[in-house]
Design a protein around this nucleic acid. Structure first.
Length: 547
RNA sequence: GCCUCGAUAGCUCAAUGGAUAGAGCAGCGCUCUUCUAAGGCGUUGAUGUGGGUUCGAUUCCUACUCGGGGCACCA
């Protein structure tokens, strides 16, 4: 619909003799202004040196002639053209929303593309905290949005199973005399103990650094065995969390796989002059591209995160066919990725060109920054359990309580513009009322209930004018497309919240079953249920059967 | 010091360069013999500071103030 209007406006502009103009077609913030508005007259007025208001009048007349779905086209305000769709056009859109079911709102702008998206990236031997949970929630929503545009989406998870944090955890396990770690918590505590000892004692620091190199070397069998067991326990814990979150991965990459190849590629690059040696380390001089210098291989000969990421880029290329490769992480890594991508550009320009880094903000506690080294983290499992407990006050069914909790958590993360930090207050916890995940879920449950009770007996009258909810439903495909295009799930969240509010008003004032307009209203209810259901699916928010 | 992101109501957040800056929470007042009140209706309350660009600036530029993050051997 928006596309048709855009064409009609463009044609009208040409007819008036306006030069090529950039203009907007948008949903007006005030419903009384109609279904769509354009600022085309305002934008073109300057070039034509005409009064914007008169130009808007002329434009309105031209659009009215060309665009048959419009009931009213009129100039308003300083020079906007407001378009109100005809009764028939609204009914047609609602019929589409009803008939298309799960396909309603899907686009084709990404058709034929394969997009690899990496997100979550928790580290075995540490507990998965709410920062990883945030990355998972955002990554999953982005994956869904890109997929709804017609792309084949391949989900990847990259996990740090080697490196100093692992050495610290293993040192802690050995210190505690644990040979068979059985829970993620046990390992997490060993990591905290190792980290603290590392900071306090130079001797321990040296021991842990030796362990780190021994893990890379892999020639200490007892150590390798402990490493393997700890890794398995951590990974099994992660899988369990993914199940609760309703997410899954097609490929898993590990730092233990990227370390060797990354080192090889970096050393190769050193010979070609991409990297330099400095103080025994291999570095990339980011200054040549306005960035900063980072170490890729340490003076002890171990690869850093940077070298591993180079190895990862090549490994992804080897295993997965893709047109685009997206990496989702917290914003603290922006600088890191700029340098890594700059180096990659010199090593493998085609891989670098299709790779992009998408960052999101932090999940910060009001009480201060979380640090897994300090052990003052809120774990993903802990948060889910706590909110599930709160939701179970109203839901006897544990599955529904969990769906409500996941919905609340995901809503909190996705409602904000990507990139900005979330200030999370664990005391106040999460809202299950007002603008919240459960608010959306509840609206859908109510609609489904009406449809479940429907058994005929109502009338076939048509109301005098479309309901406000109908005029909102018809914008859904545009909103989903825009959210996908700008990688901004919050746009969809905002829309769905407004949609739920409009639906609840409709629900409060209009009886559906047994009413003279039952047939008509039922179609509206189905259209709403499809819109909300599809929208929630794109956000990865579960839709409970009842609440 | 350099780079980067941010500053909107008491709190947490919205707002493609547009029309009267929207929500929720908290507060106050209504509203369940009705398809579920996790709901609905009403009400109070805001753009950090100084310049600039523009017909029009919360949005773009610039300086400042305050805060988050990053800046060689962690990830």
């Amino acid at each position: 619909m928006e596309e048709q209007i855009r064409k009609a406006v463009g044609a009208a502009l040409r007819k008036i003799g306006a030069p090529e103009t950039v203009f907007a077609v948008e949903r007006p913030s005030v419903a009384a202004h109609g279904d769509y508005a354009t600022n085309a007259a305002l934008a073109a007025a300057k070039a034509l040196e005409e009064n914007p208001r008169e130009l808007a009048d002329a434009l309105a007349r031209n659009i009215k002639d060309a665009f048959r779905e419009a009931e009213r086209v009129e100039a308003a305000g300083p020079g906007f053209v407001n378009i109100t769709l005809s009764r028939e056009a609204v009914m047609f859109a609602i019929a589409e929303a009803d008939a298309q079911g799960p396909e309603w709102g899907k686009g084709s702008e990404n058709a034929g593309q394969r997009v690899l998206i990496e997100y979550t990236d928790p580290n075995p031997f540490k507990e998965m905290h709410i920062g990883h949970l945030m990355s998972n929630v955002i990554g999953e929503a982005l994956a869904q949005l890109i997929g709804s545009g017609g792309a084949v989406v391949i989900r990847a998870n990259y996990q740090g199973d080697v490196g100093p944090h692992v050495a610290k955890a293993l040192w802690g396990l050995r210190e505690a005399g644990i040979k068979e770690p059985s829970t993620a918590r046990e390992i997490g505590e060993a990591y905290v103990a190792g980290s603290r000892a590392y900071e306090k004692s130079l001797d321990v620091k040296a021991e842990i650094e030796a362990l780190n190199q021994a893990i890379y070397a892999g020639n200490d069998h007892e150590l390798t065995e402990l490493w393997r067991k700890g890794r398995d326990v951590s990974l099994a814990g992660f899988e369990n969390t993914y199940r609760h979150l309703g997410t899954h991965f097609d490929y898993y990459f590990f730092e233990s796989e990227t370390a060797q190849s990354g080192m090889r590629i970096v050393r190769d690059g050193l010979r070609k002059g991409v990297f330099e040696e400095s103080e025994g380390a291999v570095i990339y001089r980011g200054e040549k591209k306005g960035l900063h210098t980072l170490v890729f291989i340490t003076n002890k000969g171990t690869p850093t995160y940077e070298a591993k990421d180079i190895g990862l880029a090549f490994l992804k290329e080897e295993r997965v066919q893709s047109d685009h490769s997206i990496i989702v992480t917290a914003a603290e890594q922006i600088g890191h990725f700029k340098v890594v991508l700059a180096a990659l550009e010199e090593l493998a320009p085609t891989i670098a060109a299709k790779t992009s880094h998408v960052s999101h903000g932090f999940l910060r506690l009001v009480t201060g920054k979380m640090s897994s080294r300090e052990g003052n983290v809120i774990t993903a499992d802990g948060l889910i359990a706590e909110i599930t407990g709160k939701a179970s006050e109203k839901n006897a069914d544990p599955l529904i309580a969990e769906q409500v909790a996941i919905g609340a958590i995901k809503y909190m993360v996705l409602r904000q513009a990507p990139g900005s930090d979330i200030i999370f207050d664990p005391e106040k916890s999460l809202s299950l009322e007002g603008d919240s995940g459960p608010y959306l879920q509840y609206a859908l449950v109510r609609a489904k209930k009406i449809l479940a009770y429907a058994g005929g007996g109502g009338g076939t009258d048509t109301p005098g004018a479309p309901y406000a909810i109908e005029r909102l439903i018809l914008h859904y495909p545009e909103v989903a497309a825009r959210a996908a295009r700008s990688l901004a799930p919050n746009l969809l969240v905002n829309y769905l919240t407004e949609l739920a509010g409009e639906w609840n008003s409709f629900y409060a004032t209009e009886q559906v079953l047994g009413s003279p307009e039952e047939e008509y209203k039922q179609r509206v209810v189905r259209a709403f249920a499809n819109t909300m259901g599809n929208g929630l699916a794109l956000l990865g928010i579960p839709a409970p059967e009842k609440m």
